[in-house]
Design a protein around this nucleic acid. Structure first.
Lengths: 159, 159
DNA sequence: CACAAAGGTTAGCTGATGCTAACTTAAAAG
DNA sequence: CTTTTAAGTTAGCATCAGCTAACCTTTGTG
């Protein structure tokens, strides 16, 4: 039995699972080395949105996410269902959404990257709105090492 | 008739096409404003790989791409077929692949971004191998404005 | 010549994630 | 109390892009 078969499937799957022969390449491509599959970019975006909405409005429902992300209600409904099933959020009986510790960890990680990348792009001279757009994509692409180096660079007061 | 319905479907589609009501948000999300759909990230990667292999070995076949990208032959076979159908590459009767002008334009754009981002990450202090990995993802996410600003920044000899 | 190896293709599976249509339910409005 | 609106869900579609299995060629080798 290969190590990846017992992992949660829904948000964790990375497309077709290759045969043992191809598994090494497959897993390396995912940036893993026999570790749990990483969360999908879309899940990161949902969690980040929940955190942002929480900070803005205090309480978050599914429909708030819909409006914030410009996705339809059914798209969000399924996504939050999966986030709940994977213990990234809790949804109470009235539909209010709370991040779990696991969810908050990811949300904050992405949000911090977002802020940092935006700041950096603006410092480069990119207009604010374009910086924000690009940051939304780049935030998912930074390894922790790159993130740390970028942080050092930006927080360095001069030079 | 909405403007998007006549576009080539295969490599151009961006998932389900929403109703007119939702189209504006949909298209904005793609970074378009009623313009042709943008090429998929995977197509950009294939074109970049073709350019790199071309520079390395002079001639490129489908199986070279397979080995370079760690994808199976059928995956590459379909992808290059789509690239050919959309006039990004030409495949001669012996299976040798050449970039068209359109294909080369994209390949060089991505390759240039790749080189630049890698250089920048290394300058930040990120180890070479991690810089290369992160660059592979970030290269797809830079708007042309951000790219230009990054280029200015990096090519600036001091400060 | 026979057979194996290499390159390529076809058919069909899988999963992620957007979408619409149509429904339920609860609250708000009249 | 009826009707409308808001929120959420269910069912099912579409696209992208990996994958395997099985096949066809062509080419190289004994």
């Amino acid at each position: 039995m290969l190590p990846y078969v017992n992992l949660p499937v829904t948000y964790m799957g990375q497309g077709a699972i290759p045969t043992a022969e191809n598994f090494r390449y497959y897993n390396e491509r995912q940036g893993n080395a026999m570790k749990p599959m990483k969360i999908q970019e879309s899940a990161e975006n949902y969690l980040e949105a929940i955190l942002m909405l929480k900070q803005e409005k205090g309480m978050v429902r599914s429909v708030d996410i819909s409006r914030h992300m410009n996705f339809t209600k059914p798209s969000v409904s399924r996504a939050v269902g999966l986030l709940r099933d994977n213990n990234y959020i809790i949804i109470d009986t009235d539909g209010w959404i709370e991040l779990t510790d696991a969810g908050r960890e990811i949300a904050e990680k992405i949000y911090e990257r977002h802020q940092l990348v935006t700041k950096w792009l603006i410092a480069l001279g990119v207009p604010d709105d374009i910086a924000a757009e690009d940051a939304c994509r780049i935030e998912h692409d930074l390894s922790s090492i790159t993130f740390e180096k970028l942080k050092e660079h930006i927080l360095r007061p001069n030079k």
